[in-house]
Amino acid sequence: MKATVKTKTSWKQALKRDWQLYLLLLIPLIMVIIFSFGAYPGLRMAFMDYKPAKGYAGSKWVGWDTFRKVFKDADFKRALRNSLVFNVLDLLIGFPMPIILALILNELRFKRFKKVSQTILYLPHFLSWAIIGSVALTMFKPTSGLVNIALMNLGIIDEGIPFLNEKWHWAITYLLIGVWQSMGWGTILYLAAITGISGEQYEASMIDGANRWQRIIYITLPGIKSTIVTLLIMNLGRVMGSNLERLTALGNTQVKEFQYQLAVYIYNKGIGNNKFSMATAVGLFQSVIGVILVLISDRIAKKLGEDGLL
């Protein structure tokens, strides 16, 4: 009698066997359907002169007019420029930091120290931007900020460093605070990926005489390469986005030339003036560019021999 191995499973069998798992999957699936797809019909607002009280039925269709107006607006151009520049800088500075940190944490052998360090590094992620902004203000005000007072008392500087009130200083402060807030949390995925690397590889390399640095370069980094690529592609999709809370918490009138990014533009000019069509048009524009960037980077990653995201 010839033994056969069953390689195909019908959906009925799969459902019967794993129905609990499918049931659990339903929860996020329903959420995505409601909160992502369910909002799609609202995008038509971008092509209407939408009046809240008149609703969709009573508002006029205006085609691409809203987009044309937005693209002609000098403030939009400023916001777009700032968003692109600051998000690229965020990516350049902020993206490698969690990787470096994860590699360092992975090398720590004293477990308790490692755990405490990880917890401390994760904490800023749980702070709201309102709190971070308030702390930053107390720390970095030009004359009454703690840092400037300390530096002046130590005789290192004669007058306060304008961390928050001069646009170039502000740019650095803004970027570094962003890195500080997110880098700890960003290590989680990399640390998880690192644990997936077989210990045998490290043992073999040690027998071959590889030092710690070589183990990082030739084993750890290649081991998490696909995770890095996946996260890079996802982060590229956010290059057009910006975080209103972060910009509002750290912003003031002196640095508006740099602080004025798309999120601020959408909130102030769109929602603040009740121009919902305009807010939606800019949001849609951001998303479309984000999707294009994701697709392009995915294609490039695949050409370079990586798995990609899609």
């Binding site: 992502s36 609202g42 995008l43 769109g270 919902f276 939606t280 998303s287």
Partner: peptide
């Protein structure tokens, strides 16, 4: 897009 649609509209 869904994320934006949620925020914007």
């Amino acid at each position: 897009i869904g994320l934006t649609a949620c925020g914007g509209a």
